[in-house]
Simulated scan of single mutants.
Amino acid sequence: MEIIRSREFTANKAWGAKDIANMNGVTTRLHWTDKPYIWHVNDGEEVFAVLHGVVNMFYKQNGEVNSIILNAGDIFFASVGTEHVAHPQGEARILVIEREGSI
């Protein structure tokens, strides 16, 4: 058992993570960041939940770039093949659930 105070979590670099669980090849990780990630497509599906902060999530749909502002409590689900990139607005803490080894 472990209690994690997500608002207190920091990392020594952007997108640094605390591994919380690996359940049969599906990982749950807490990320801290203050910088954008890179455009990517995950190896499987991804659940991206903003716990603290604001994130501008860019994603491609039908060849067009779209974006949505995600606030604390908002969840972005990237289905298989969804190209996306997260741009935090200041510091953000994000819970990511995805297949082990995914980008």
Rank of each mutant, 00 (worst) to 15 (best):
Y59F: 15
M57H: 04
K13V: 12
A14Y: 02
P88A: 06
V50K: 04
V50T: 08
G53S: 11
T33G: 00
V47R: 05
N24Q: 13
D34F: 02
G73M: 06
K60R: 14
I97H: 01
A49V: 13
L51A: 10
H52T: 15
P36R: 04
V50N: 01
V47W: 03
N22W: 08
A21F: 06
F58P: 04
F9C: 01
N12S: 13
G90L: 03
F76L: 11
N56G: 09
S102M: 12
K18V: 11
H52P: 06
E8I: 09
I97C: 02
V54W: 05
T33Y: 03
E64D: 13
L70Q: 00
G73K: 02
I75P: 00
K35H: 09
G101I: 06
E91G: 02
G16R: 01
E83V: 03
E98Y: 03
H87N: 11
T33D: 01
D74S: 07
D43H: 15
D34Q: 10
W32S: 01
N24H: 12
V55S: 02
V54H: 09
E45F: 07
I75G: 08
V47Y: 09
E91H: 01
V80S: 10
A49T: 13
P88V: 03
R99K: 15
K35P: 03
Q89Y: 05
E2Y: 14
W39R: 05
A17T: 14
G101H: 10
I68Q: 13
Y37H: 13
V85L: 01
G16K: 01
I69V: 14
L51H: 08
D34L: 00
G53M: 09
H40I: 04
W39H: 07
D74L: 07
E83I: 06
W39D: 08
T10D: 11
E2M: 13
P88T: 00
A11T: 09
A72R: 02
S6D: 12
T10K: 13
G44H: 03
R5A: 12
R5N: 14
T27C: 14
I3L: 15
A14W: 01
E2A: 15
K18W: 01
H84K: 07
G73Y: 05
T27Q: 12
Y37S: 10
N66S: 12
A86P: 02
D19K: 08
K60C: 14
G90D: 04
E98D: 09
A78K: 03
A86V: 05
G53D: 09
H87Y: 11
K13R: 15
V96K: 00
E83D: 07
F77Q: 12
E98C: 07
E46R: 05
D34E: 13
S67T: 09
M57S: 00
G44M: 06
S79F: 11
S79V: 12
E64P: 10
G53L: 08
A78Y: 00
L30Q: 07
N71S: 10
K18T: 11
N71H: 10
N66Q: 13
F58A: 11
G101T: 06
A49K: 14
M23A: 14
L51K: 01
I68S: 10
L30N: 04
Y37T: 11
A14K: 02
F58H: 15
A72G: 05
L51N: 06
V50Y: 00
W15Q: 02
L70A: 05
N71E: 11
P88S: 08
V55E: 00
A11P: 02
V26M: 08
K60S: 11
